[in-house]
Design a protein around this nucleic acid. Structure first.
Lengths: 360, 360
DNA sequence: AAACATCATGGAAACGTTTCCAGAAAACGC
DNA sequence: GCGTTTTCTGGAAACGTTTCCATGATGTTT
């Protein structure tokens, strides 16, 4: 039959070709490859040999159609280029591999519309599940979650969504730790360089994260009996130019701040750059600490004190939750992973006496 | 028919359900969704309405089976966590999106066996094509390239493979530029911190890249009438510990080097760290330049002079070559993308007179 | 040796599409 | 108005699997 199949033939060999070549039924070939049912060793060997000869690869499409699932998971992140996201992706990949599932990756760049498109596509692909670092609002995910496959959020959750499992870093604790650390060093005029929501919609997942961090900062100060100076709490969009502008504005306006807590690596980067620009020595003139332990934190001079959010673990766990704990998925609240303080050289005791407005 | 289909019904609606609901044949529904053939506006509207009511999403598996392709591409990189790879991935994603194809991503971590496994999986998935930053040797890709879908290499090529299209950075020119730049500043004792192949097999793609860079260094010196000091050409594996050891060995042994050319960002990182450790001022005591313009290069103090390899563009072009130029794919040699010199503050004129062996 | 469980096997019916083919209806030129 | 094209439509046959079911061949128990 079909002489144009297999090996270097035009079209790839199918299970039928293998069956014919081995002189068995297609059901038997299927059993050999899917491992189910029982086949005599002799037959199995014959089938395997035939398959080898024809260079047969079972088609995931055929199988997927029958099984009604593609055996893969979808992963949506804002941006692969961000070191935290990259870590997270690596974590998902590592876990997916242990389950033998493949991963379709796409980036939404914080755009809810784009995110919705991607979800649509994933649904069409009949993925076994979706892991997302969500951009969009609640509504978009309502519908998506309804569709067959499961959804797990990683790193953040659209505000108002409660019935979808999630794996998050303990941001609140992270910022608290950092704040306590700075206060412990003696700082009193600590600036908080936060992230403003990108668009007009304040109901984004990213916005919620920013809010949590800012609130954690305020709460921690309050708990320590200090009152936050509103003028020292500024927000730049999580974007290079905007972050830089915010940091520059802050440090020029208030020469008396002794420490800056940056709520994200782009903001931290801005702080470092601005400090260098203004000839402020770190940590002699200002201490700088930031959320996100990106690689450059260690290469900075001085190396930056940070709070490390476990991107890899978040990705890994999210994938586990999706694939392993399908059953008990909805139980309990989100999984919280600890954020760890990494002390390096960028923070020291405050040097009293920088007069307000000293740098021009 | 099938009351348990569609909307919030158990199983997702199929084309048949839509056809029934709209009172048309399934062929008509198919035509409406695939855009082929012609349907009267009235019928189209009726079908669309029915589909909306049932929340119908065409199954990519069914279509894929029929069309014998999944409409997606596979992407294999060594490690998403590497900034260059991340850029490359972003480039592929950006291009794939314009073609409406999705991307299955996996990481081989430089392990040819793992790479082969991934390729197998991608073949099973009947991907439209594969883009790879290859780890493995020629043999593994021989077979893979034979299988239906096309393969395009990005960033590097397994030695000995000539008949597979590729998109590469012009490494030779990059290293030449950097070398000429250093020589132009007056340096004569320039160390080359290169990458040694990871395993015993020297026939890996990564090994070939390392070789090209080292040769480019030598050739450039020769072209400028200088002779390379073999003692100053060292190699660390592209891995943190090994790179650090190599850099430390070099700078301790030869206090007379005035410039270090690092052939990759991990090697550059090592150079920076070692220089700091040995209290060498950059660029006053040593100039440092490196291949790969990673984000931290700008945040270093002083910011590092680098050669930027266009990761994003490489990914984008590779994807274009795969999807657009299917026809004329094999024509001509690999596509070479220019690498650009980014001058920052880490290189200056040599300071004559550092006595050999000065730092302990 | 009869009755029975077990194993190995093949046929055939899904699974959800696309597409060829042919027929019906509508538009057209005279 | 009648052939003739053109547009629209539905039936049915793939596409490559898995799996239910039936069947014949073993092996096991009395």
């Amino acid at each position: 039959m079909a002489a144009d199949r297999g090996a270097d033939g035009r079209r790839p060999a199918t299970i039928k070709d293998v069956a014919a070549a081995a002189g068995v039924g297609i059901a038997t070939v299927s059993r050999v490859f899917s491992g189910t049912g029982s086949v005599s060793p002799a037959t199995r060997e014959r089938v395997l040999a035939a398959a080898r000869g024809l260079d047969y690869r079972p088609s995931a499409l055929g199988r997927g159609l029958k099984l009604r699932s593609s055996g893969g998971i979808g992963l949506i992140v804002p941006d692969v280029t961000d070191p935290f996201c990259a870590d997270l992706v690596a974590g998902v990949l590592a876990c997916a591999r242990t389950f033998g599932e493949h991963v379709i990756l796409d980036t939404a760049h914080g755009d809810p519309a784009r995110e919705a498109e991607i979800v649509d596509r994933l649904v069409e692909q009949r993925m076994d599940g979706v892991i997302a670092v969500p951009a969009g609002e609640r509504a978009a995910w309502r519908t998506a979650a309804g569709i067959g496959a499961g959804v797990v959020f990683a790193d953040r959750v659209p505000p108002g969504v409660r019935d979808v499992p999630a794996v998050l870093a303990d941001d609140r604790a992270g910022v608290r730790t950092l704040t306590e650390y700075l206060v412990g060093l003696g700082h009193r005029r600590i600036a908080f360089l936060g992230a403003a929501p990108a668009g007009p919609a304040t109901a984004t997942a990213a916005g919620a994260v920013a809010e949590v961090r800012e609130r954690a900062f305020r709460d921690t100060l309050a708990a320590l009996g200090l009152t936050a100076d509103e003028d020292l709490i500024v927000a730049g969009r999580h974007e290079r130019d905007s972050a830089y502008a915010a940091a520059a504005g802050l440090l020029q306006r208030r020469g008396d701040v002794t420490a800056v807590l940056a709520a994200g690596h782009l903001l931290g980067e801005a702080a470092v750059l601005v400090a260098r620009e203004l000839d402020l020595r770190v940590p002699a003139d200002v201490s700088i600490a930031m959320v996100d332990d990106v690689p450059w934190a260690e290469l900075c001079d001085p190396p930056l004190t940070t709070v490390a959010r476990p991107g890899h673990d978040i990705g890994y766990r999210a994938c586990e939750v999706l694939l392993r704990d399908r059953a008990r998925r909805t139980r309990g609240g989100p999984v919280l992973l600890p954020a760890e303080l990494v002390v390096r050289g960028s923070c020291g005791p405050p040097r009293g006496g920088r007069s307000p407005g000293r740098p021009a």
